[in-house]
Design a protein around this nucleic acid. Structure first.
Length: 262
DNA sequence: CACAGCGAATGTGTTACTTCA
DNA sequence: GATGAAGTAACACATTCGCTG
């Protein structure tokens, strides 16, 4: 089960678009996060929850900090320097690690090593399950945790690291797709609302031109009941009763019920 | 057998931090 | 002590490619 999606479902999405200046935010390590929030009035969003945020959850950030701290505390420890087919590592180192990995990994292809041939490891169900469990707990690992988990799984730390990286990427992708759907629905809702308001405006203009009496009240003095769409003179409402001039019955029917404005 | 999708692995770019001259 | 270059580690992101249904 995808954690990001779970979060979104559990906490509810606050609809609100809050895009910072650059569209990106950085954590203390300079890693960028897209932050997208969309804010809508509650009346628009009956079925949609408000607050969409694309970004790392706090526990991830915490884990990142911990990992950084751990590395800082021992920048050249055996753990951190162990790592793992890193891009900055030399190819020689990588090939050595690959050879070591061949011994460690319990599922090694039987085919002839072609030098550049990439071995394809398929994680077992147990391995995947354990990795998933750990990912649910925290989506990033510090070097010690990575090392321990790799040992537990009989994998190379690099493989654990890669798995977590790919897992984070998949989570983010799913979350992005989910957010996209929410935003689409949000857009549709707003479009509907916009159409409705335009229509209402059109009707009110028609009403205004058709009925001079309507002009007796300044616009600010008129309020409309949101439920029955009836327009009243708000300040005088209780005394003078509803102000009704309506060639459009659907707008002004039932003038003594519903909201306080009526 | 071809093919699409999945996912493990790799490559690249960026940032933070440390070391050293 | 301040400073800048070099090295290292971690990450996100894009991509490759082997495997599987």
């Amino acid at each position: 089960m995808d954690m990001g999606q779970e979060d979104a479902c559990d906490t509810g999405l606050a609809l609100g678009l809050n895009y910072n200046a650059s569209g990106l935010s950085s954590d203390r390590h300079g890693h960028r996060e897209a932050v997208v929030k969309l804010e809508l009035s509650p009346s628009n969003m009956v079925s949609l929850e408000p607050s969409l945020t694309l970004g790392l959850p706090d526990d991830v950030k915490k884990a990142k900090v911990e990992a950084r701290v751990a590395r800082q505390s021992s920048p050249h420890s055996t753990v951190s320097s162990f790592s793992d087919g890193h891009p900055s590592s030399t190819k020689k180192e990588n090939s050595i690690r690959s050879e070591e990995a061949e011994k460690v990994s319990f599922r090694v292809s039987d085919e002839e090593e072609e030098g550049s041939a990439r071995k394809k490891l398929r994680l077992t169900k147990d391995q995947s399950a354990l990795l998933e469990d750990r990912f649910k707990e925290q989506s990033t690992l510090n070097p010690k945790q990575k090392q321990a988990l790799a040992k537990q799984l009989n994998l190379r730390p690099r493989q654990v690291e890669v798995w977590f990286q790919n897992r984070r990427a998949r989570t983010k992708l799913k979350q992005t797709e989910f957010d996209c759907e929410v935003l689409k629905r949000c857009c549709e809702t707003l479009s509907d609302e916009n159409r409705r308001l335009k229509k209402e405006l059109h009707e009110l203009r028609a009403l205004k031109s058709a009925s001079p009496l309507y002009m007796q009240f300044p616009a600010a003095a008129l309020t409309m009941c949101p439920s029955c769409k009836k327009i009243t003179a708000a300040s005088e409402g209780s005394k003078a009763g509803p102000f009704v001039t309506a060639p459009k019955p659907h707008l002004f029917m039932n003038s003594f019920t519903h909201s306080a404005a009526c």
